[in-house]
Structures are given as C-alpha cells and as structure tokens.
Amino acid sequence: MNVNIQFREDGDLLVGFIEGEIDTYTAPVLREELEVINLSEGLTIELDLSNVNYMDSTGLGVFVAFYKKVVKENAALKLVNLSGRLTRLFEITGLSELMEIEKGGATNASI
C-alpha cells in the first residue's frame, strides 16, 4: 500500500496527481506532501484523484485539513477526476457541498 503525489506548476495553477491508496497508513505521507506546498493568495490547487483506487475516512481528514488551510490563505482547492466511489464518499459526508469537486478538470486537457 502506497501513495504518491507529483506536482505540475502552470502559473497560478498547481496540479497534483495523486496515485495509490489513501488509508490510515498512507494518509500521513500525503499530509506531509500537501503541507509543504507554498500557499499564496490567488493560487489554485487542483488535485487529480483519477489514480486513487481506495480512500477511507482518514483520507477525507487529510483533504479537510488541507482545504481549511487553503481557505485561510485565500487560495482555492479543487478535487478533480474522482471515481464513482470517491464521489459518493464526498457526497455522503456532505463535503461535496462545501468543497469544489469536479468529475473532470484542467488535467483532462493534457490527456
């Protein structure tokens, strides 16, 4: 079980491609990777979850904490390319009403 994130910067847009499984064991790794992002006003962070094949509620915790930090810094966060299973997780928990979640995203342009 592993999680891996790679970033691509494009002006005011920072795209992070997350790959793997996000659970109790891998969540701390992802949290650390997200913590080092230099947040600034006007920056949009787009996290592409198309290669996340499993996520439990600990994973949600990582995104919620990161979302709060991003809002505090007046930056924006988008989660894109979620599987049906992940979309449902965000819907049940009411987070899809709060956070910006898209089935597609800027990353689709590069495919």
Binding site: G94, S96, E97
Partner: peptide
C-alpha cells in the same frame, strides 16, 4: 441526507 460531518464548520 447530505448533512455535513460534525466538527468541520
């Protein structure tokens, strides 16, 4: 129901 998790807002 789409109520938000407790402890977020």
């Amino acid at each position: 129901a789409k109520g938000l998790l407790l402890g977020i807002l």
